[in-house]
């Protein structure tokens, strides 16, 4: 008899679970990790949506998009969160995304206007180095110096691709020449951000390609102010991270609610000290102490998603040619 009621109880419990709508968000791995924004975001959204928010980590940004393409319209996901501007064109081409318009007071330099994707954070690529070490103020100086840098491979890593775009945006036709001169500064090229950053912390290089917000991690989380970044006078390339709603969603209302929540104060407040990026909408409390300032719009370099997609192939070839010699 007791067994029977136990089984009945289990059925009831699962029925109750089934009644709660589930919103599935595919995102990159570090977003859902215990040290990322995931846990706080989940708690905050579930407190207001009467739903079950399931965040699924699917590798990094590029792997995330491949996953969505593999699943196509049969995907369980309602929202894809974590594609960046360099991959947006490819994401658009899938035809899997639904237009949405979420109005907010975006703090993204240059503003934001896209029919399909909503930004949730952004950052500048930069070379991170130790405070007090020899520094440079642009790529030409860097190439002429003896400084050693670690970068990521643009074929496997989003920051790596960002650097490619950065040089292209700052130097255009001279990009090839810059890469030729940078060749002897590059200690090595890693597959992902983690290896490169780890190598820098081990002292393998004077500088590492990362974000202007990276030193803020060390200042805020580790009370270590020994890291800084080199300010480049030609400006810094931006990465805007966006989320989009899949047309195949079975929870369209909930998905819209999530996207609105994403640009709300609660969500945006979580971003700076968990994802270590600039929030897309500045939170009411402002940016935390230790965070760098945003640059002027003129110094905030970025290609439109379609330009970025069109430039990628040639830029990659330039890079490969220069570094393969």
């Amino acid at each position: 008899m007791r067994n029977l009621s136990l089984i009945a109880g289990l059925f009831l419990a699962s029925a109750a679970v089934a009644d709660t709508p589930v919103l599935t968000v595919y995102t990159y791995d570090s977003f859902v990790s215990d040290w990322g924004p995931g846990p706080a975001v989940e708690a905050a959204f579930e407190a207001q949506c009467a739903c079950d928010l399931q965040m699924v980590g699917a590798g990094d940004g590029a792997a995330l998009l491949s996953r969505v393409k593999l699943e196509g319209s049969r995907s369980e996901a309602d929202i894809v969160l974590g594609i960046d501007t360099n991959l947006m064109a490819a994401a658009m081409d899938t035809g899997l995304f639904e237009p949405v318009s979420i109005v907010a007071d975006y703090a993204v330099p240059g503003g934001w206007d896209d029919k399909f994707f909503t930004p949730f954070d952004w950052g500048y690529f930069a070379f991170v180095q130790n405070v007090g070490a020899e520094t440079v103020t642009n790529f030409r100086e860097l190439a002429a110096s003896d400084l050693k840098i670690v970068i990521q491979d643009p074929r496997s890593s989003t920051p790596g691709l960002g650097l490619l775009m950065w040089v292209k945006a700052a130097y255009g036709a001279d990009a090839q020449e810059i890469w030729n001169d940078l060749d002897d500064n590059i200690v090595t090229v890693t597959a992902g951000w983690s290896e490169a950053y780890g190598m820098f912390l081990e002292g393998e290089a004077d500088m590492v390609l990362s974000y202007t917000t990276s030193p803020a991690y060390h200042i805020i989380a580790e009370q270590d102010d020994s890291k800084t970044f080199a300010v480049f006078d030609e400006g810094h390339y931006m990465q805007v991270e966006v989320a989009g709603k899949l047309s195949s969603t079975d929870q369209p209302m909930l998905a819209d609610q999530f996207l609105k929540f994403m640009v709300s104060n609660v969500f945006q407040e979580i971003i700076p000290t968990t994802n270590w990026m600039f929030p897309a909408v500045t939170p009411m409390t402002g940016l935390p102490e230790g965070f760098p300032k945003a640059l002027s719009t003129k110094k905030s370099l970025i290609f439109s998603p379609s330009d970025a997609a069109a430039l990628r192939k040639d830029a990659l070839l330039e890079w490969q040619t220069a570094l393969s010699q």
Partner: peptide, 11 residues
């Protein structure tokens, strides 16, 4: 990962 990390570049 190895080939890339210590290989020194796209070579």
């Amino acid at each position: 990962t190895v080939a890339l990390a210590v290989g020194g570049g796209p070579k």
